[in-house]
């Protein structure tokens, strides 16, 4: 199935959930975050779509005025088609439903996005930091991240300002 057909299938099942966004490419679709768990179950279990492999979850910080986004790359081993789902979050309290029960790798991928961006995945059984230590402060990959002063007595040097690249 082509990405356009997949988008139509999602729209027909969950009307009003596909959002228009002209920044996105053809194989990307932006969905509303409210019914994400039901939509993900539909994407996985529907026999025409059958997305059984979650390739990657990426967290994106679109800049100061933009939202935080989570992007899911899905792939079907049976039908060999792909789709990329984009969900935007509010910057103050970013949260969305967790899909770790559908694709078991979602467990670790969501923990990593939580660690780096602070996006809370509701329903995740064990959401804690995975790469940074448990008592690390801040969300490192956000664009406005300020490093902490010291960690257990070891001084963490400030991240230096880069000159402008033209």
């Amino acid at each position: 199935m082509t990405p356009a057909e997949i988008k139509t299938a999602i729209e027909s099942q969950f009307s009003g959930s596909v959002l228009e966004n002209e920044d996105l490419a053809e194989n990307q679709v932006e969905l509303k975050g409210e019914q994400w768990l039901e939509m993900a179950t539909f994407l996985k279990n529907d026999p025409n779509l059958c997305f059984d492999q979650l390739e990657c979850i990426t967290g994106i910080d679109t800049g100061e005025e933009g939202p935080l986004q989570t992007r899911y790359n899905l792939h079907s081993m049976e039908h060999r088609h792909k789709i990329e789902v984009v969900i935007s979050h509010d910057r103050e309290t970013p949260k969305v439903a967790s899909i770790e029960q559908l694709w078991r790798i979602g467990d670790w991928f969501e923990r990593e996005t939580y660690d780096m961006f602070g996006i809370v995945y509701e329903g995740h059984r064990d959401l804690r930091r995975i790469l940074c230590p448990d008592d690390w402060e801040g969300w490192p990959l956000r664009k406005d991240y300020e490093g902490q002063e010291d960690y257990h007595g070891i001084v963490v040097p400030k991240i230096k300002e880069e000159e402008e690249w033209e």
């Binding site: 940074c132 490192p140 991240y145 490093g147 070891i154 963490v156 040097p157 991240i159 230096k160």
Partner: peptide, 14 residues
Amino acid sequence: WQHGYHVLKGVDLV
């Protein structure tokens, strides 16, 4: 050394 917030800049610090 430059952007590693989690990297210790030399083991002779410990």
